[in-house]
């Protein structure tokens, strides 16, 4: 697209901003730092899952699902964009730098999202676990005292509703077909169970978030809420319950990035690394 005088507009100016403009000073510095920590984990979760699931584009089980699953993956990258942009406004950083110019060690995604896509049942099981956990986390932010956050959370929740519907349909479909579909689903859930709670890895300054009425409850409580939600569905489908226990402290630690994440990081930064400082 060009302006009237023929100059080319950068693509980013064509994208509708979803994050309302706000004054950084509305938040006290401690609350702001704590919120920055939380938003980075949420952004990285969505970003990494979005890229893993986009690995199905072209090879999903049926054409319609190919379009649907790719669209879910794009939605997550869209949500990541919103969180990176809010972070950028909070800290004076740039969304693109956060997304494409950090080292693999700096990412904060939950370990649940550190696995490659695996087979179809694995991707479905992982996304079902993540989407249900994300729903609990978003609900805990919906009443946040920081209006721009509550506003964006409200919009994201409306989009995530469809993700939950679609994942629920697939979980039931796989669970309801004895033989290979159910076996593969059970194997996937068993492999992911140890990492299932990592979405609720406690954050260093989360009590400040709770004190400032940004987050309604600490992560440990959110984890319990989620476990009882998904526990009901697993029980209904006759699937094994998730292991007891609390979210591990190192559930988002990537000081030694996995091989699979290094590979994914190489993929999603490959265009940005082609030419340093290039603008879209």
């Amino acid at each position: 697209m060009t302006t009237t005088d023929g100059a080319r507009l950068p693509t980013r100016q064509l994208i509708q901003p979803d994050v309302p403009r706000f004054e950084r000073r509305t938040l006290k510095p401690e609350a702001r730092d704590a919120l920055t920590g939380l938003l980075l984990t949420m952004a990285d979760d969505e970003f990494v899952l979005g890229f893993w699931d986009s690995e199905w584009t072209g090879i999903a089980p049926l054409l319609e699902e190919d379009v649907a699953f790719s669209s879910l993956a794009q939605d997550e990258i869209g949500h990541a964009r919103v969180w990176y942009e809010m972070l950028a406004q909070l800290t004076g950083d740039a969304a693109d730098r956060l997304a494409f110019h950090r080292a693999p060690e700096e990412f904060q995604h939950a370990r649940l999202l550190d696995h490659p896509r695996g087979d179809w049942a694995f991707s479905i099981a992982r996304r079902w676990l993540y989407d249900t956990a994300d729903a609990v986390r978003l609900a805990a932010l919906a009443e946040a005292s920081f209006e721009p956050l509550a506003q964006v959370v409200g919009k994201v929740i409306r989009e995530e509703r469809y993700h939950l519907m679609h994942m629920d349909a697939w979980l039931r479909r796989l669970a309801g077909h004895d033989g290979e579909p159910r076996q593969r689903l059970e194997a996937a859930l068993a492999a992911l169970a140890p990492d299932a709670l990592t979405v609720f890895t406690p954050l260093p300054a989360e009590e400040r978030l709770v004190d400032a009425d940004l987050l309604s409850a600490p992560m440990v409580q959110l984890a319990d809420r989620w476990r009882s939600d998904v526990g009901l569905v697993l029980k209904e489908l006759g699937l094994p319950a998730l292991p007891e226990g609390r979210p591990p402290a190192e559930g988002r630690d990537h000081s030694k990035p996995s091989e699979s994440f290094r590979w994914l990081w190489g993929e999603f930064t490959s265009v940005a690394r082609l030419e340093e400082g290039a603008e879209w």
Partner: peptide, 20 residues
């Protein structure tokens, strides 16, 4: 039109193909 194993997924796919 979409190809889907049941009405539930057909509705999801219709949403993806015709209102995304």
């Amino acid at each position: 039109n979409v190809t889907a194993p049941d009405i539930e997924l057909a509705t999801h796919y219709a949403r993806e193909f015709y209102s995304r």
